[in-house]
Structures are given as C-alpha cells and as structure tokens.
Amino acid sequence: MLGAGLASLAAPALAAAPSVTVTADQALRFGAFFTDTTGTRTVSATGSVTGSAIVPLTGTAPGPAQFTFTYDRGNNANVAYSLLISVLVPGTASQVNGGVTGTIARFDTDLPGVSALLPGQSAQVTLVGCQRQICSRTFRVGGTLQVARTSGGADLTIPLPIVVTVLAEL
C-alpha cells in the first residue's frame, strides 16, 4: 500500500522545470515615407498610424510588431493561475544609415495595464486566466519612429529585442 502510494506520487516531483519563451512573430513596420529633414511616424499597438512632417508613400503596409510569450509551468496540474511578468525593451532602438537616422524612443503595447514602454524601463503585467501547463499570450508592440534626414533615403532595420521575465506565478 505504501509502496504503491509512493510510486503514484513520485510523478509530479519529476516534472520539468518551468520555462519561458518569447518569439518575434512580426516586425514593427513603419512603411515607406518621405521626410524633408525631420519627421515622425507612429504605429500604435492597435494598428493606427499617424505622422508628422512626413509624406506617406506606397509600400509595405504599416503595422505593429507581434510577439508571443509562452510559459511552460513544467507540470500538468490543472489549477488556475496568473503570471506576473515584466516586459523590457533593453535600450534605445536606433539606426544610422547614410544620411538618415531613425530612433524609436517610445513604444506602446496592448498588454493589459501597460500604456507605454520606455527603453530601459521594465513594465510589469499580470496575465490572468492561465489554466494548463502551457500559458501563452500574443501581444503587439507599436512605436514612434523619429527620423532625421540630411541626405538621400535609407532602408532602416532597427533591432527591437524584447525581454520577458516571469516574476511570479500567482
């Protein structure tokens, strides 16, 4: 009896350690536009597009970046839980290409409770409604691109790393 009980209880203790992955599903796309010297274009997390001192041109349609966060709690316990996570854009996202400088100084996201993401500052988010071993959320990130142009044009590809840390399972 005791031997049988130990065997059945041993399984959860051997469960894998929790793990977190984040994938970049889609780039933040500002599209094609012209600016004389300086201009900005904002693509929000919801997909709205605004601009200042730019002329939008045909090309790739603007749209927010999309990321998918996946948490594997490491066991199959069917218990509802929430996750407290932090989301961080590590540093200023910028690129200089010829006579064009592009800088993204501010981001926004559709993660609940987070209106803005500032480079270097983490934002905490509580993800509710997790139930199974795998808890996954897809979220979008928008931003404001500031462009300074002294000559010519450029294709800008600016790295946009996103760091997600699980602070607690609640």
């Binding site: 094609a32 970046a65 691109l145 590809t157 760091v163 399972e169």
Partner: peptide
Amino acid sequence: AASGQSATAAGQAQAVIV
C-alpha cells in the same frame, strides 16, 4: 516554480525612408 525565468525575442522595426 515560476520566478526568474526570462526569455528574449529578437524583434525588429522596419522603415523605408525615401
């Protein structure tokens, strides 16, 4: 089981300045 787990996604932003 949860705390401290971290992951990074290498996203990017794209724009064509004409």
